[in-house]
Write a protein that binds this DNA or RNA. Structure first.
Lengths: 206, 206
DNA sequence: GTCTATATGGGGATAGAC
DNA sequence: GTCTATCCCCATATAGAC
């Protein structure tokens, strides 16, 4: 039974419209970024008026935060649904591939912006921080396990590995491969996988 | 003989003030980014008034573009001044270290923004594009040579290698290592070197 | 060339009708 | 709850005095 069937007809429409707005905002955040995205853009893209938009979300910051929360929920769900037989390194690789494909289809990276304002905005949201913490703890465990298995280098600190990993989801190299290199999504994912796990150095070189 | 000594006293002061403005803008672009940086910020940081600022640079875009041009000139100079005995891979590593240290000291990355607006702004400047092209050609040659020497993987396209390389100069992992990991600049440089050249995978793993 | 003071436009947010 | 029309701040850019 869908969650929607518990609600009245009007509330269903309201909830659906909310998802439409979140979808539109996701696309706009991905293409223009937080600073350049205007509430007029969002209203136009979602097909509603600006005051209606403000009935759903009390501010631009609130709206963007909800988008990021939904994205993190998606990541947590994906991670939880992974095949039980996969190794830790395979899980890391699979989640990275998921994130890259989300982004290649107009979605958002985990780290949406280097802007101090956006970072601060997100850390003010308890619901966002809770999810980041939960995901980070799971990722930490995966890296530790992969280190033990010898699939991830043990000579680099775990947090450094994770920072590098998260950063690949917003790597500008993806845009360059797509826009200038004309690579297919599959090729881009494969290249990013190679770059993060094996590096660009020749075999045996450090 | 300094270039300044060819100019009148007044022009010398003018040129020096221009460098002060560029320095201030560099710091502000690094901390706030183009969108959030205001011309009031720049004027205040440089210690002049806004109209004076506009006597030096005709627009905010012009100002930011000049900053990027000066940065690229710095990179080209650094590359040209490298010891003749260095291998191609050593040159690549050295330039990356230079770029990371510039950034760690409040400077800018090569790829200043993922914003379409900023990218378009920069590509409108012939002087900027000329320098990007010149640097890119030199980098391409270095990667090709390093591939031949077996120091860089030959199974990845050269442009993919370069996109990954450029992206490391603006990698958010650097900020995370500095802000959350409390790593020293030397440690950050070493970790970034390890990540780009050797990857995070265990030895012999791909 | 430098300043104070100001014009102009855009964008976040809302009042009030329906 | 949805819209039209509007408020108001802020940031780019400039006019005009010295």
């Amino acid at each position: 039974m869908s969650i929607l069937s518990k609600l009245s007809f009007k509330d269903q429409a309201f909830k659906l419209r909310e998802q439409t707005v979140l979808d539109a905002t996701t696309r706009l955040l991905a293409s223009k970024g937080f600073d350049l995205m205007t509430m007029d853009d969002v209203a136009g893209e979602a097909g509603i008026s600006k005051p209606s938009l403000y009935k759903h979300f009390k501010s631009k910051e609130d709206l963007a935060t909800e988008v990021m929360i939904r994205l993190l929920d998606g990541a947590l769900e994906y991670l939880a649904a992974l095949d039980a037989g996969l190794s830790s390194k395979e899980r890391l690789a699979s989640l990275l591939e998921w994130a890259l494909r989300v982004r290649l289809q107009g979605g958002l990276p985990f780290l949406p912006s280097a802007s101090a304002q956006v970072k601060e905005m997100l850390t003010r949201s308890i619901r966002y921080v809770t999810r980041v913490y939960k995901l980070h703890k799971q990722m930490e465990a995966l890296v530790e396990q992969a280190k033990t298995a010898g699939d991830i280098r043990s000579d680099l600190p775990t947090d450094v590995i994770l920072y590098a990993y998260y950063s690949r989801t917003c790597d500008p190299a993806v845009d360059y491969m797509k826009d200038y290199g004309r690579y297919s999504d599959d090729a881009i994912v494969a290249h990013m996988h190679a770059i993060i796990f094996a590096g660009i150095g020749g075999t045996g070189q450090v």
